[in-house]
Design a binder for these strands. Structure first.
Lengths: 129, 129
DNA sequence: CCGTATCCTGTCGGATACTG
DNA sequence: CAGTATCCGACAGGATACGG
């Protein structure tokens, strides 16, 4: 399936490219990046605490995000057999290297917010609804 | 390897944080990154050509993506008044700096695909069903 | 406290058809 | 060639309720 427009492109290795795209898509998620940032800053963090620090994230999305990140080997989930339950999350070495890679994007966004907003305003003035 | 050494994240302004998140969300899009990569590699590219080079992207999504990127000041759209129409896209300076920032993530993904797939396989074996 | 399960709505995104 | 317009299925993701 997926017979789409623009098929057949002279790329070197479509398999590797697809995998990289997949990894990027998974990892470049909004919540993934925020969780990554929180864990870099705070080290080991509990579930609810992680939710608060991440901002307005629903419990559902937080669960999904940490689960996917654990599956990808980015974080480690530690369950303490106590009552009430205590679960802590921390980055793996792989997670730290990813955070390092994303650091560039994060600082870029911070540094260029004003330029982007200016560009948007100019565009919207140029192309009104 | 590893050796993370992360400088602590400076500010704590929720407004700025929201904006950064917004920018990240916009810019970390799958198609945005692919278009970015193609334009870095090929310089100035026409619409259909861009579609082919980007891989399996529908015309609709390509239009949306380039429009949003133009609005954000990442690319420049040049219309040549000829028949048949000829429209070319190229990166702005801002676009190039973004591509540079993403370069780290891209190479990270390439370098760690195998580790991620191994982690996923291990996780799925550990947590079946 | 740490989740899972369910419902429900908005948005994403592909397919198709048409214009300058 | 370079779009625009429209229909529509799929799914992300919030709100809520419940369980270990």
């Amino acid at each position: 399936m997926t017979a789409v427009a623009f098929q057949s492109y002279p790329q070197a290795d479509p398999r590797v490219d697809a995998l990289v795209t997949d990894v990027i898509g998974r990892v470049a998620d909004k919540w993934t990046m925020l969780v990554l940032e929180v864990l870099v800053e705070h080290g080991e963090v509990r579930f609810t605490q992680l939710g608060r620090l991440t901002g307005k994230i629903s419990q559902k999305m937080l669960t999904q995000t940490v689960r996917a990140m654990e599956r990808d080997g980015l974080i480690i989930r530690t369950v303490h057999p106590v009552v009430p339950p205590k679960v802590e999350y921390r980055l793996t070495d792989l997670g730290y290297t990813l955070a390092g890679a994303f650091c560039g994007v994060w600082t870029w966004a911070e540094a260029n917010i004003e330029r982007i907003e200016a560009a948007r305003a100019a565009f919207d003035a140029r192309v009104p609804c």
